[in-house]
Design a protein around this nucleic acid. Structure first.
Lengths: 151, 151
DNA sequence: TTTCATTCGTTAACCGGTACACGATTTAGG
DNA sequence: CCTAAATCGTGTACCGGTTAACGAATGAAA
């Protein structure tokens, strides 16, 4: 019933599918491009750091990193000073994907927002920001006064 | 880098988290509410029908239905006329969730769009519709003339 | 009537995401 | 110094999603 939730769900699914096919053209799975993006900005980060930057959990990064290491996109190495830490280093193959993947992502953004005017695009970004704030606030407030109007 | 894709990703994640906690209050997992919604409209559908209605694959519905049957929300029964078909029937427990879940979903929509004016909300829905259309068109056109301007 | 193609649901394997428990390593306190 | 607490990566188990393969049942054509 709720209009926004419903529409967002459908749009999100379609967008996800488009992003997946785009990234698969380069042998990546959806989400791995985000992990790579973090490492492109700076190499040798720990799984925990990457997880925090991507707003995902650490086990998720570990699993993705394992698969990507098998795929030859990155390598693991333990930190010499602190032996608990593991640092993720890009291989040449992983580094070589930066340009094509970023281009692919720019292209997707462009194609998907092609029917929007500049004003519409700005309004959209503004609305999404507001919703993001509201949803985040909702998650951070486990207080169940969900029916009361004001705090 | 792309503004919309980036912002949408973050917002979507926050929204998903909020929806999950909302639905978990009633013992459901995210996505199961959609399956139930289809059955609330009409009982006794087949997994394939439900999958088509939800825009997901059939195995997904089968797995979810299995878990929900264990949870006592629905039951499977084979069709008498066509023994290939399986029909999903709501239990009383599954039917009892309709009011609370729909209320929860309405509340979430309300809370999440609380900071938007009516005009903003309309512009948002319009923009999402356009993006949904573009993304869907992108998926349905495996033609790789992605760099050419016009068809 | 008897094949043969179609249409189902199911299973298995994979990926992204989560929470939870575990083991190893640092670090801080006594 | 040595023990206890905090930190970090990993393994396991689960859920939602996908694709590919399989088996059973139906329906149509020969």
């Amino acid at each position: 019933m709720p209009e926004f939730l419903d529409l967002h769900g459908k749009m999100s699914k379609a967008l996800r599918a488009a992003a997946e096919t785009a990234v698969r053209r380069h042998g990546l799975h959806l989400g791995q491009d985000h992990l790579l993006a973090v490492l492109w900005r700076q190499d040798g980060r720990t799984p925990g750091e990457v997880a925090a930057m991507l707003n995902v959990t650490t086990p998720n990064v570990v699993k993705a990193a394992t698969r990507m290491a098998v795929a030859g996109l990155l390598t693991r190495r333990r930190d010499d000073r602190d032996n608990r830490l593991v640092r993720l280093w890009l291989t040449d193959a992983g580094r070589a994907l930066q340009a094509p993947i970023e281009k692919e992502r720019r292209l997707l953004e462009e194609q998907v927002t092609a029917d929007l005017t500049e004003a519409e695009r700005e309004h959209l970004l503004s609305a999404l920001t507001k919703i993001h704030r509201s949803a985040t606030a909702l998650r951070d407030a486990p207080v169940d006064q969900r029916n009361s109007a004001i705090t």
